[in-house]
Nucleic acid binder design. Structure first.
Lengths: 209, 209
DNA sequence: TAGATTGTTAATCGATTAACAATC
DNA sequence: TAGATTGTTAATCGATTAACAATC
């Protein structure tokens, strides 16, 4: 049955979809043609019921008795997550981490591509990092706006992160992957995801002794 | 009143504590002596009621009328998270990302320190990365065991991550911060946290158009 | 057909919020 | 004292799980 209305999907469900996609892409690489909520659940440490419930929010992708066809499910998940296209991104901040990200090969098959790289350090502007020539951050607004880029990765020092984020929002950026260890303040239409290893580590030490 | 019993704290509560700590450390740096659940909540985008409830699971840190004394709350949170000591860590995998992490200055005031760095590439073994000489991964087990290290950061290629993780577990590691885009399988006593930018990005594209 | 597995409902479980007495 | 804010309880809200008819 075709879904006619756009139900509101809980954010926590959306957050699991990329993990489902990653797992079935892995299974595809291993040569499997179909999978089941049970098998997927075991691989991901998630209950089979939850996987079925999550997927059923978006459509009926499986068959009773045989499970889910992998190529079809990959295609559907990519469609749902809107990664059945290539998203252009900008990277701001070319320290060690920005350098590593600029050279990371893993974005391409996730649906992403870094288009431009910026920094404010005159010593870095004009230099080559990976396949990119570092641009002056003063040119960020006009470049991002002209290219209609929606996604930014932020790898500047914590002290500059909010200022640069403001500038990104001003330029039309709607999604920020923030590597700086600060809580960014942005308008409601802008989505922020944080990557902060210290937070992850501190969460684990609670369970150590 | 002193807590006599160790209640079981939900993992989701533990996961918020490092963010509370980060926020009040920031306030401390800004010169504040006290804060309230209200102010903290506004900074973090979390309800005041939730912050009070979370903190009250561990003790009574505040005063009616005046809120929470910042230095005391910092101290208490560090104690709860067991980061009132310095945790030694190993880093495995010296690609671009491992390189960036080895040189990252942000671990120290989070309560962490990288003790050793490993790789299996003969061209890298013996070379200097940050303050470290890269060691042969074949020596990982004896080194980690001898030093009693409990925490590892994993920055090897996806194809090798599970094998190296097995090796880490074997060596006595109990917490793994995994940067490889795979779901690791580990025994129940080992905690894993994943950092995977593509997952974060795919979660945000759902909301773009 | 017989066995397997979906999609979905209802029940359970857990987390968040609202409200307020206590009290600084 | 009067105002502010905690710690905690009860109410609400949302997420997960169990169960099973439908059906491949």
């Amino acid at each position: 049955m075709v879904k006619m209305t756009d139900k509101l999907i809980p954010d926590i469900v959306v957050g699991r979809l990329p993990r489902y996609l990653r797992a079935i892409q892995q299974m595809s690489k291993e040569g499997f043609q179909t999978t089941s909520s049970q098998v997927l659940g075991e691989r991901l440490g998630i209950s089979a019921a939850q996987i079925r419930k999550d997927l059923s929010q978006f459509g009926e992708f499986g068959k009773q008795g045989t499970g889910y066809p992998i190529p079809y499910l990959i295609q559907q998940l990519q469609h749902i997550l809107k990664i059945n296209r290539k998203w252009e991104m900008v990277l701001v901040g070319v320290g060690d981490l920005g350098h590593a990200i600029a050279r990371y090969q893993g974005f391409a098959n996730g649906g992403f591509h870094i288009t431009m790289v910026f920094d404010n350090d005159p010593k870095k502007i004009g230099s080559q990092v990976g396949d990119y020539i570092v641009k002056d951050i003063a040119l960020l607004d006009q470049n991002v706006r002209a290219a209609g880029i929606k996604i930014a990765m932020l790898t500047v020092p914590a002290s500059e992160a909010q200022t640069v984020a403001d500038c990104l929002v001003q330029s039309g950026i709607q999604s920020i992957l923030n590597y700086a260890p600060v809580t960014l303040t942005v308008p409601p239409h802008v989505h922020v995801q944080n990557i902060d290893p210290v937070i992850n580590l501190q969460r684990m030490t609670y369970y150590l002794d």
